[in-house]
Design a protein around this nucleic acid. Sequence first.
DNA 1: CTTGCTTACTTGAACTCTCAAGCTTATGCC
DNA 2: GGCATAAGCTTGAGAGTTCAAGTAAGCAAG
Lengths: 167, 167
Amino acid sequence: MNDEQPPEPRWLTTEEQRTWRAYLHATTLLEDHLDRQLQRDAGMPHIYYGLLVQLSQAPRRTLRMTQLAKDAKITRSRLSHAIARLEKNGWVRREDCPSDKRGQNAVLTDEGYGVLERTAPGHVAAVRQAIFDRLSAEQVAQLGEIMKVMAEGLQPTDVNADLPWLR
Amino acid sequence: MNDEQPPEPRWLTTEEQRTWRAYLHATTLLEDHLDRQLQRDAGMPHIYYGLLVQLSQAPRRTLRMTQLAKDAKITRSRLSHAIARLEKNGWVRREDCPSDKRGQNAVLTDEGYGVLERTAPGHVAAVRQAIFDRLSAEQVAQLGEIMKVMAEGLQPTDVNADLPWLR
DNA sequence: CTTGCTTACTTGAACTCTCAAGCTTATGCC
DNA sequence: GGCATAAGCTTGAGAGTTCAAGTAAGCAAG
């Protein structure tokens, strides 16, 4: 027989709950806000905009699909669908990768770059208004550090990459 | 003629960019992580789980649709679809509101409560592992304050509610 | 050189979200 | 009462996301 009881879970303290709720509210409100802002002004959701930004900063405005997916923290499947849509808009072009016949490069077109040029100011203004105009310099630094720590803990590092005993 | 130039937008400083990127990475990674965790263990996305939690804490486990939508920071349309799905699962029931024939109440069923009981420990553990186990008490307090400020700035207060000259 | 495993990417179906439109009931005003 | 407007909620269609499955090309071992 198994007499073990599941251990009483460590619930959140009142203070932690307050923080967690505030986190959920702020992040969902902001994401909705930016999604609407960009959908209205740039004709695409926030995540798609982020893809164009990544491409615009890459050498030759070109990135391998897998790399872009990693940078943007999304699955390759999602990226495939997204690039298909952006390609239909004429903002991104696909190219075969010369060195690896399995590979695809996503390339930001001039049109895509133009969209970015036209809409970036409005987007930055929205971000600024939501965050940086409301926080002290100290808080911005704190936020940066906190988010860095959180992101590190969530990085989907290759499973087993840190498990030498499985190699 | 119009000689006005659009003012050069105030771009983000390097420090602000770093913080903004960290924010985007951490929030998308966490949301994906929790969505998968709950989809796997509770059979619903994070936001749906949040709806059940709200209901579980309301008197008589009942809430008007509009109120629930406000609490969860989602549109009424989205809520309608969500409740329809949860109703199909038998976790929520709709009731006509006695005092207002337009109104609908969402009620958490016993089954719904059961799902919550069974899955809450795992969910809390995931949240704890992603945030509270990795941050100092001080950082938790900072995060709470920062998120509170951000949420306040994004609150979709009724348009015009703060514009007395339009009344 | 071929067998088997891995990597890169795509696809389709099921599900969710958004947006605009629609229905019903409440409320204020004459 | 009768009318206009607002509030509460739903619906359907189009767009986006997820998950599992599929194709094709690299790679390593024998």
